[in-house]
């Protein structure tokens, strides 16, 4: 069936079977492989994307459900010039990336949180990551990276507010 939606700020039209997941649509049909396949039952969060700004597991969304809606994947969170975003850079500098498999999902979960608040507590950051599993880092550095980004973004924002 035909599905039209906004993917990373661009309108996309595809013709796919009705019973595939959003995850499969992204990877197998649109060849955007940044979104990872993990458990495919909503346990690991490797396939996390933003759907109309909300964090969801793309393995548990049926592809036709995105008709007319906005999807943002890891490919859509980069800086304007295409380089890594501030959050992604902080993941690198905090040493939050080891094997890297969970990282696209982690970045999406972090991004979802930072869109809601720029002053999260560490426990709020941990809470925001409860749907994402990482078997390498022990999470500390991932929490650090998100915390760092929140501080930087809120400083930039308050700087901007003062100028106004």
């Amino acid at each position: 069936m035909e599905i039209t939606f906004i993917l990373n700020r661009q309108k996309v039209r595809v013709d796919v079977p009705a019973d595939i997941t959003l995850l499969s649509l992204l990877r197998d049909y649109l060849h955007m492989t940044g979104t990872k396949v993990g458990c495919e039952v909503g346990e690991c969060g490797a396939c996390s994307v933003l759907l109309d700004g909300k964090l969801v597991d793309s393995c548990l969304v049926l592809a036709p459900q995105v008709e007319g809606r906005e999807v943002i994947t890891i490919e859509g969170v980069c800086a304007e010039d295409g380089s890594p975003s501030d959050l992604q850079k902080n993941f690198i500098s905090a040493g939050a990336v080891q094997c890297g498999y969970c990282i696209p999902g982690m970045v999406m979960a972090g991004e979802a949180l930072l869109r809601k608040t720029l002053k999260p507590t560490r426990s709020e950051i941990r809470e925001a990551l409860t749907g994402n599993l990482c078997r390498c880092t022990g999470y500390q550095q991932i929490v650090d990276a998100i915390e760092m980004t929140a501080k930087q973004r809120s400083q930039t924002q308050s700087g901007r507010d003062k100028n106004v």
Binding site: K54, V56, L60, A112, E127, G131, N132
Partner: peptide, 9 residues
């Protein structure tokens, strides 16, 4: 219930 992802849907 579940995780933020699960609760959102």
């Amino acid at each position: 219930v579940g995780s933020p992802q699960i609760r959102n849907t």
